[in-house]
Amino acid sequence: MEKILIVEDDSKIAELLHSYFGRYGYEGRIVEKFDQVLTEFKEFEPHLVLLDINLPTFDGYYWCRQIRTVSTCPIIFISARSGDMDQVMALENGGDDYITKPFHYEVVMAKIRSHLRRVYGEYAPKIEERVVELEGLTLYPERLEVTLNDKTTVLTKKEAELLEMFLSSYPKVMSRNKILEKLWDDMIFVDDNTVSVNMTRLRKKLTELGIEGAIETVRGAGYRLNMTWNQAKS
């Protein structure tokens, strides 16, 4: 059963959407803690998200960007804002579609079915899974998994993109600017510390595979992949 996450603070609209989903054979879940949308997304693992713009704490644009760090699932904005720039902002921040309120629920369902078919169903592209490998360290970008010596660890989307960059460009040094350019060109506000934080997370994931010091900092230049796992085998 395909799952749909509803991020809507109007309880009446949220409940009506939820009832429609059940009627059409989908499993719906309404977000209750609007400061923990990403946490609920990770717990529920939906196939599609319906996302309002005007939300408590942070707006829908923010949460769309957060979801895009871990998933490429379809995100449909639903909002009373009908301006062209609102729709542009929604798409620029990672959304796939935009529906203005008030809306007909049948239109919402038609769009949901269309996006689900496109991504998961009959219209989904039939492509072979990509594999990026270097000296036994194997990354599966679409699965968000990396393996070494029969050990596997799960990555976030950003961690997988980072590791793919290092594996594909080895033995080159990757500058901080190049990493920001490659991974965060879809984000409006990016703290320079973001690179350090994500690098620390990736190092931790590789440590889970038994690799210590896999990514070294090159002072004044950036970061480089260090084939310590290959040295350990020798």
Rank of each mutant, 00 (worst) to 15 (best):
L137T: 04
R143M: 08
K178E: 09
R65V: 07
Y62L: 02
K178S: 12
I53C: 14
L206A: 05
I188M: 13
A232Q: 13
I127K: 14
G136E: 09
L48Y: 02
L16G: 07
D185E: 14
E181Q: 04
L55K: 11
K101Y: 00
K101D: 04
Y20T: 11
K33T: 07
D10M: 04
L137G: 03
E106Y: 02
V88N: 03
V146L: 07
K204C: 00
T57I: 12
D186N: 13
A214C: 02
A232M: 14
R203A: 05
G28P: 03
F77P: 05
V146P: 02
A124W: 06
P56A: 07
Y223W: 05
V70W: 02
P56I: 08
I179K: 00
T72V: 12
P171H: 08
F41I: 09
F21L: 15
E122A: 14
V195Q: 00
G60V: 11
G22S: 11
E129M: 15
K182H: 01
N149T: 08
E142I: 14
V49N: 03
I211V: 11
S71L: 01
E161V: 04
T200M: 13
Y24P: 06
R201N: 09
F34P: 06
S169N: 06
K3F: 07
A221E: 12
K111T: 10
R81Y: 11
Q36A: 12
Y62W: 13
Q36V: 00
V190H: 10
I179N: 00
L5H: 05
L180A: 06
I127E: 15
D186E: 07
D9K: 05
A90R: 13
I76V: 02
G121C: 02
S11D: 11
Y123V: 12
T152Y: 07
G83K: 08
R201W: 08
D10N: 06
R143A: 13
V7L: 06
E2L: 10
S196G: 08
K157E: 06
M85L: 13
L202Y: 07
A232I: 10
D96V: 00
A214W: 00
L163W: 08
A232K: 11
V70K: 03
H104G: 10
E128C: 09
N226E: 03
K172S: 15
G22A: 06
